[in-house]
Amino acid sequence: MALNTPQITPTKKITVRAIGEELPRGDYQRCPQCDMLFSLPEINSHQSAYCPRCQAKIRDGRDWSLTRLAAMAFTMLLLMPFAWGEPLLHIWLLGIRIDANVMQGIWQMTKQGDAITGSMVFFCVIGAPLILVTSIAYLWFGNRLGMNLRPVLLMLERLKEWVMLDIYLVGIGVASIKVQDYAHIQAGVGLFSFVALVILTTVTLSHLNVEELWERFYPQRPATRRDEKLRVCLGCHFTGYPDQRGRCPRCHIPLRLRRRHSLQKCWAALLASIVLLLPANLLPISIIYLNGGRQEDTILSGIMSLASSNIAVAGIVFIASILVPFTKVIVMFTLLLSIHFKCQQGLRTRILLLRMVTWIGRWSMLDLFVISLTMSLINRDQILAFTMGPAAFYFGAAVILTILAVEWLDSRLLWDAHESGNARFDD
């Protein structure tokens, strides 16, 4: 018995066209964080690309023209004298008006014999932002004059995390709450300039795509075929072959399989920071003279006294001054041990922890910024005066060393310790 099946006739004509040209192939790229070699397709503007294995951002879609970056830099340069030299806060102490600005706080630190601690604050609040705007201006002028731009481009990517104007702005709020127990506070004209400078700096850093600047100024022929001998440069993120001198053909720094002496430098910085954190938390970090009496505060006791007036601000200072430094030390110690013992479990967790400490590390400088600003506000000789204690130097040095330890660690070593050939990683 035959089955009668109805015929289905399409209502619209289906047209099949042959592909007349070869589909576009992607360029081969190595991930600078996990060293995976993959094919990167062509990316349009405002599109980002991520590593298929570790999800690290390979290409950032946010990109401004150099002219727009230069305009932002010149605007920031105009704001800087007002943000640093004009009063941020006014207080009335014992019937006398006192003005506080950024430069005055750094000068008070240096004047009291601790120039190293003052230079830490100076670099993060004044030096690094000033280098940022002058570097962008150098790129703008240098591109037109045919100057060598490689050193500036190499420095810009590392400079971003040292620009800490946003953290200093939080420190202004913390210092205001600490001082309000002794005097009446009012915002100064410099505060508005400083807030504007923070906003412009944040926007500029978020749109400063150094890798795209490398592509514009020093374009290189990408690798179009897969080759395990391809290496990625950690300076400019170019994937290719080393030249005859073993250097990256684009930025001219040595092109090595792994960062040289990464573990040794990381261990040295980490152990030194552990040693410095002990006096930083045991010795007094601030000293207040009130009517001839002397009151010393460690980091913890200062947080407890701050909690009596504002528990939320005390929580912020606790996280930045105690929780973050010790968390960074514990995480980095764990990561280094996992590399030495070739741990194969929990790779995803370790990668996330490394990215976390990379982002939060700079916030530990908050305590030094609060001390710097408070020193310029309260300084009335023996009637009422505020000065920093010996722990300030140890704390600042420990924070900087932990930042350097994270920067010096080559994250690809975590993958080397893991089993080879993993296309995915999980716990």
Rank of each mutant, 00 (worst) to 15 (best):
D114S: 09
T202C: 14
I136Y: 10
Q7L: 12
G142T: 04
A49W: 10
T358V: 08
L3W: 12
P249S: 06
N281V: 07
L300W: 10
V195I: 12
G346C: 11
L404Y: 03
G315N: 14
R412M: 00
L197C: 02
R225C: 12
L23F: 07
I322K: 03
Y218W: 06
T67P: 14
I403W: 01
A417S: 11
L255P: 03
Q104N: 06
M332K: 07
C266K: 02
G292S: 08
R62N: 15
F122H: 13
V163Q: 06
K160A: 09
I131K: 01
D114V: 04
I303H: 01
T204N: 12
P219K: 10
P6T: 08
G188M: 13
N379R: 13
I288F: 04
Y218N: 04
L373G: 05
D114C: 01
S135E: 01
F192K: 14
E22V: 06
L366N: 09
T11M: 13
L69P: 13
Q7S: 11
A417F: 11
L323F: 05
I19W: 10
Y218S: 05
R25K: 09
V102M: 14
L153T: 14
N310G: 06
V125K: 03
N209K: 08
S364V: 00
R362T: 04
E419V: 12
D427K: 15
A128W: 01
A398S: 09
T349M: 13
Q33P: 08
K265E: 08
F386Q: 00
G235A: 05
L89T: 05
C31H: 00
F369A: 02
P254F: 01
Q382C: 06
I199L: 11
E157F: 15
A183L: 03
G235T: 03
I285N: 01
F123D: 07
D60E: 10
C124Y: 02
I316F: 09
V179Y: 02
R350D: 13
S372R: 01
M164I: 03
I253W: 01
S420Q: 11
C34G: 00
V102D: 01
R245Y: 10
H46G: 11
A391L: 01
F318L: 14
E228Q: 08
A320I: 15
W267M: 09
R144G: 05
I126L: 09
L156P: 01
A196V: 15
I58F: 06
L336V: 13
L413D: 06
I177W: 07
P6M: 06
D35H: 10
R250A: 04
V102T: 09
A18E: 14
S420R: 11
E419L: 10
P219W: 10
L323W: 04
M80Q: 06
W214L: 12
Q55Y: 09
D243G: 05
A268F: 01
A187H: 08
G95T: 04
F82V: 08
R247V: 05
L200E: 11
K229A: 06
L37F: 12
L154R: 01
P279H: 02
A405E: 04
L154C: 03
M304F: 09
E86K: 13
G105P: 12
S372D: 15
A272P: 01
P52D: 07
G146V: 03
Q186D: 08
S286E: 00
Q382A: 12
I339Q: 05
M388S: 06
L354A: 12
R362G: 02
L79G: 05
L255I: 06
Y168D: 06
L306C: 04
P249E: 05
A391E: 03
V195E: 03
E407F: 13
K13C: 07
A307C: 07
T204G: 06
L409V: 06
H340R: 09
L278T: 06
F74L: 12
A398Y: 07
G188D: 07
P222M: 08
L377V: 05
